[in-house]
């Protein structure tokens, strides 16, 4: 167990010493997750709200697909993105395998079903409330969805956190699709795997601790997001 204590000291040294590898991995991790979750949120949250409010044709099937999507193993998503972007794949001409953008594409697919499912559930929970009735009868669609999303702010922030959680420490996309390339596509999570494979148990603890520290920051931001707007 002593390697845990050594790992804590190592984490401190790396952060205070401004270790290039670690800071780069932090940058890659934040770049990929923030971009992927933001892009996914911009599409999936309105989509989930629309599903919940208006129950369009094929409603059950769409909800079903979103729910199953949450279960798809990250490695399978990684395989799909790899297949699309490899030289033999349909998007091979983009020449973007082993880039951060490829990781973003995979994490987008990981985040989307979580955001969609949770938003849909939050909106569905409002069914039968005066707000819901007023919105579906009266207001224009855009306005109705915005008002509804404002109302269910807290569960939506929870959805965004869950999406972050799935992407932040995932390996199924980052390693096969990102390539774990040093100072290019190496994330904090893939740094841990590499240090483990080298047998540096203490060194593997450090990126894990940094990951948790970043999670604390994100969880704090979540409190700010769900606060009632002062009117």
């Amino acid at each position: 167990m002593e390697f845990l204590w050594e790992g804590i000291q190592e984490a401190f040294r790396l952060v205070v010493g401004g270790d290039q590898q670690v800071f780069h991995a932090v940058g890659v991790t934040l770049y990929c997750t923030v971009t992927a979750v933001t892009l996914a949120a911009l599409v999936a949250i309105p989509y989930g709200a629309w599903l919940g409010l208006y129950r369009p044709r094929g409603y059950r099937l769409q909800v079903f697909v979103l729910r199953v999507g949450m279960f798809v193993p990250t490695v399978v998503v990684g395989l799909i993105v790899f297949g699309m972007l490899s030289r033999q794949g349909p998007l091979g001409w983009l020449d973007s395998l082993y880039t951060k953008q490829a990781i973003v594409a995979g994490e987008f697919l990981l985040a989307f079903p979580i955001l969609g499912t949770f938003t849909h559930a939050a909106v569905r929970a409002q069914r039968g409330t005066p707000l819901e009735t007023a919105l579906t009868l009266g207001a224009g669609r855009q306005r109705a969805m915005l008002t509804m999303l404002g109302e269910v702010r807290v569960p939506i922030v929870a959805a965004i956190l869950a999406a972050f959680a799935r992407c932040f420490s995932e390996l199924g996309v980052a390693i096969p699709v990102g390539g774990n390339l040093e100072l290019r596509t190496r994330t904090l999570a893939s740094t841990i795997v590499l240090d483990l494979s080298k047998g540096n148990f203490a060194k593997a603890v450090a990126p894990g601790l940094i990951l948790i520290a970043l999670a604390c920051v994100i969880a704090t931001i979540a409190f700010l997001l769900e606060r009632e707007r002062e009117s």
Binding site: S86, R87, L97, Y98, I175, P176, G179, N180, L181, E182, L183, R184, R186, S190, L194, S197
Partner: peptide, 23 residues
């Protein structure tokens, strides 16, 4: 040397062969 043509993969032999094939 930090050359951008030297790719440090940090992965096993199989994935490195895949990477060499792809790149």
């Amino acid at each position: 040397s930090g050359a951008d043509t030297y790719l440090k993969a940090g992965q096993g032999m199989g994935p490195c062969l895949t990477m060499a094939d792809q790149r």
